[in-house]
Amino acid sequence: MKQDMTIREALNKAHHQVMAADNSVIVIGEDIVGGTGFAGEERGGVFGVTAGLATKFGTGRVIDTPISETAFVGMAVGAAMTGLKPIVEVMFCDFMGVCFDQLMNQAAKARFLSGDRVLMPLVIRTTMGAGDSSGAVHSQSLHAMLASIPGLTVVCPSTPADAAGLLKSALKHPDPVLMFEHKGLYDYTGDVADSLPAVPIGQGRLVLEGSDVTVVAVSAMLHRCETVALGLASKGISVELIDPRTIRPIDSKLILSSLSKTGRLVVIDEGPEFGGFADSVIALAASEGFAYLKAAPVKITPPQTPTPYGRALEKAWLPDENKIATTLTEMMTVA
């Protein structure tokens, strides 16, 4: 059986499933129960993903924390090293700066430094993305920065099925997994099988088959590209659209195989223009797919500035459908 649900609902259901299946799964974060210390029922978390968990599983396993990212992320790392399977919510990925040492130097390195004796069944869920005037420090997309650290695995689901399925795989992964959920996609609805099947880490998804240009697009940008690609089909441009789903390890086989067919590559990401995910995919194409290329690969990212706040400013900062359509159309004029 399949049913339509939002990413928020799919993640919530997945949390309920994994917590019911395994007593060692705990959930930690700020305001994830909500209302702790006040009279009344739990409020269900800032994004609603953790709603009902404390009522069902108790506040011993669903733990509201002080606003102390270093301490509670570090505590989760230590808990993962000693037999628990923590799912941590870091409310915005911008807050990674506050707990970065525990991620970069502790979580990322524990398995390696232990000679694989210590596994890290640790999932850190966080949000990414601009578009709702949250301002410069609640809108960033830092998935590539985290992915650049050896020992960390990073996923960016764009659909309800992938969000739930990647959460399940992440808990079984030997390394810490950071899951970046786009703030603007929590209400995005899609088909999900009732069992919420696991989605393998490291495997991208072919969203649209095409022959003219390979487009790799992350998270919310994927949906923006899908709209554009369907529009371009009527103009005779056939787009092959790939959702990488996992940022690191990247599904290079899927991307290179597509590139061998199309010879053209566009990467669209909300991350930084310099040193970001788009650069990594283009480097992959240049070093391992050079012979396929008919045109120079192109990236579409926001400009290398902090995210502006005002509605018009932010709209201009984010890649939009026009920019994507124009870039893809121009690319077809080359060779």
């Binding site: 060692s24 705990i26 011993g60 396993r61 270093t70 301490a71 509670f72 992320v73 570090g74 505590m75 989760a76 790392v77 230590g78 808990a79 993962a80 090293m81 000693t82 037999g83 628990l84 525990q102 502790q106």
Partner: peptide
């Protein structure tokens, strides 16, 4: 913080 994690595991 890592020792706090060990303490949390013991408590849980």
């Amino acid at each position: 913080p890592l020792a706090a994690g060990a303490a949390l595991t013991a408590k849980t």
